[in-house]
C-alpha cells in the first residue's frame, strides 16, 4: 500500500518535472510566431469549421466533401498544436523530442501522459466554444437545434482528435 502510494507520488512528481522542463524548452525554441500566438491560431483552427451548422450541408451534395474536410481539419489543428511538444527545431531540421531525452531519467509513460494531458487541455478549451457557436449558428440561421448538432461537435471536436492525435503521441514518443 505504502509502496503504491510512494510510486504514485513519484510519478506525479515526475509529471510536474516534465511540465517544467517543457516550459523551459519552449522558452528556448523559436517558431516565427510567439508560442502563445501559435496556440491561439491552433485553437482558432480547431473551432472554425465547427461553427458552421450541420443543417447548412445536410442533404446537399456537399455532404461528403464537408465530412472529409471536417475529418482532416479536426486532426490537423490538435496535431499541429501538439507537435511543439514532440519535435524540436535544430539547425533548420526537426528533431524528435524523444531523441534528446533518450538518456535522461524520464519515464516514457509519464512523458506520454503529460502530452496527452496537453491535448486534453487543448480540446477541453476548444470543444465548449465550438459547441456554443454550433448551437448559436443553428438557432440563428435555421431556427432549429438537433442532437445531431451536438453529436457532430462532440465527434469532430473531441472524440476523433483525441483518439487520432492521442495515438500519434503514443507512438511518436519512441523511448
Amino acid at each position: 500500500m505504502t509502496t503504491d502510494r510512494t510510486k504514485k507520488f513519484e510519478q506525479k512528481k515526475q509529471r510536474e518535472l516534465i511540465r517544467a522542463f517543457d516550459q523551459e524548452m519552449l522558452s528556448l525554441q523559436t517558431y516565427g510566431l510567439p508560442v502563445s500566438w501559435r496556440t491561439g491560431l491552433h485553437r482558432f483552427m480547431a473551432v472554425f469549421f465547427l461553427i458552421f451548422p450541420v443543417q447548412a450541408v445536410y442533404g446537399s451534395g456537399e455532404w461528403t466533401a464537408f465530412w472529409f474536410l471536417m475529418l482532416s481539419w479536426s486532426i490537423l489543428a490538435p496535431t499541429n498544436y501538439i507537435s511543439i511538444f514532440l519535435y524540436l527545431k535544430e539547425n533548420t531540421r526537426l528533431v524528435p523530442f524523444s531523441q534528446k531525452i533518450k538518456y535522461l531519467p524520464v519515464d516514457p509513460k509519464q512523458l506520454r501522459l503529460v502530452r496527452i494531458g496537453y491535448l486534453l487541455q487543448f480540446l477541453g478549451q476548444t470543444l465548449p466554444v465550438s459547441l456554443i457557436f454550433q448551437c448559436l449558428t443553428a438557432l440563428i440561421f435555421y431556427q432549429t437545434l438537433s442532437l445531431f448538432n451536438i453529436l457532430h461537435v462532440l465527434f469532430f471536436g473531441g472524440i476523433l482528435p483525441f483518439l487520432i492525435t492521442g495515438a500519434s503521441i503514443w507512438f511518436q514518443i519512441d523511448l
Binding site: F21, E24, L28, E90, N91, K100, K102, L104
Partner: peptide, 22 residues
C-alpha cells in the same frame, strides 16, 4: 550518441537537462 541542444550554450543545456535529475 548523447544528445544535447546544439544551438544553445553549455550553461543553458545544463540548466534545462539538469532539471530532470534528482
Amino acid at each position: 550518441k548523447n544528445n544535447f541542444l546544439l544551438e544553445h550554450s553549455a550553461a543553458q543545456n545544463a540548466k534545462i537537462f539538469g532539471m530532470v535529475y534528482r
